[in-house]
Simulated assay, not measured.
Amino acid sequence: MKKLTGVLVVVLSLFLVLPVAAAAPDLPESHSFYEEITYLMEKGVITGYADGKVRPDAEVTRAQAAVMIGRLQGLDGTKRATPFRDVPASYYASGYIAEVAEAGYFMGYGNRTFLPEAPIIRGDMALIVERVFDLAFTFNQPFTDVPRNAYYAEAISKILAANITIGYPDNTFRPQQKVTRGQFSAFLARALEREFKNDATIARSYQKDKTKTYTYRMSDGTTAVHRFVDVPDRDGLTFGFMWIAEVDGEPYEYMEFENHQFFAFGYPYSEYDLALVYPVRVGQTFDTGLGDETILHTITGVNKTVKTPYKTFTNATEVTVQDGFKYYMAEGFATIKSINAQGRVESELVRVE
């Protein structure tokens, strides 16, 4: 077991708010972020320009992002004085900038400037999302271009844990890359709704569909029902979206962590268990032990046919633990079946709704 650290618009024109994204001539349904932008437009977070366009591929400035976050949080955007010498009270976004700064969502610079016309970069966007949504958990698997001491490193780790980002296939996050309106919309939509979190996955992901319910039958005859929900905070601890499994009426919480190197199950304010390494191929071994302990897992089969009460899978990946325990995983379903060393079925998928 590995350690999991517990901790996880834009208005250039104020003249027109489009009621639906379909009214925007530059936002076809084929656009990568059509659904996310539509969702935020319907919530009144994104507005269009005077010409009816939304310009989904235009870069987002710090002022525009402040307006977007201000509207999302229901802040008062009335123009006012700000603590920043480059944001006078007459500036169109002064009210929102003053409020998001007061709320701690945005920070200024040491010379009392806000740089309202500067574009947002991906690293700063991670910080904003982490602050706005009070993300609690980190997935400490660093990207190759995110130094551990970078000011945005922990925030990036948190949005990775929260299924808001996945990074790029070359294991980079590209924190200095400028953010477009569409990309900003995707980050916010994924933070808000489980449906959009399904988009923060790698190609051929093993994560379950967060909008569905999965039921497993256990070896003792009980059933385990898994749902992805927004878990209320309790005992002074922050939780948020995660899977809840109810086994014979007793719930426990966990998360699915995935990047381009591996898949793992994480536990709030505790640890995570490595379940699969990528690329998936027979003979791949990985250690899930903690400290001096070694627990070897080996991928012993791919495209296996595995029968479950739910259906027969023909694309299952078989993983064998050094003690003989076997489990099977399938793309889009995570674990579908597990069998102990004596051949007894310990759990198997029986229903997906």
Rank of each mutant, 00 (worst) to 15 (best):
P56C: 08
P19Y: 00
K53D: 07
L75F: 06
G95H: 04
G70I: 01
V54D: 11
E36Q: 15
G48R: 13
D76Q: 03
P19D: 15
P28L: 04
A58G: 02
A66R: 02
G70M: 07
L40M: 06
I69H: 00
P25C: 10
V45A: 06
A22V: 12
T61G: 11
A23M: 13
G44L: 05
V67W: 00
A89Q: 14
G44K: 08
P56T: 02
L75H: 09
P83T: 13
E42V: 00
A63R: 04
D51P: 14
P56G: 10
G74C: 04
A63Q: 03
M68C: 09
T61M: 12
L72C: 00
A65P: 00
S30P: 04
A81C: 11
T82K: 10
D76Y: 01
R80W: 11
A22L: 10
A89G: 11
S30K: 12
R55V: 09
Y39M: 09
R62P: 02
Y92V: 03
R80P: 15
L40K: 05
T38F: 01
G48E: 09
M41D: 06
Y91V: 02
H31P: 03
V20Q: 14
K79C: 06
Y91E: 04
A66V: 07
E36K: 12
F33I: 01
M41K: 12
G95R: 00
T61C: 10
G52K: 10
V87H: 10
G52Y: 15
Y34D: 08
L27V: 01
Y34S: 07
S32W: 15
K53H: 13
H31I: 00
D51F: 12
K53Q: 13
A23V: 09
S32I: 03
A63D: 05
A50W: 00
A21D: 06
P19E: 15
A50Y: 09
K53V: 03
G70A: 03
R80A: 13
T38N: 15
G70Y: 01
P88A: 11
D57S: 07
E35A: 14
D86N: 14
T47R: 03
F84Q: 08
Q64T: 05
Q73C: 09
G95K: 07
V20S: 13
E35L: 10
R71L: 07
E35F: 09
A21V: 13
L75R: 07
L27W: 07
M68A: 12
L75Y: 11
S32L: 10
D76N: 06
A24H: 01
A66G: 03
A24W: 09
V45I: 13
G48A: 14
R85W: 01
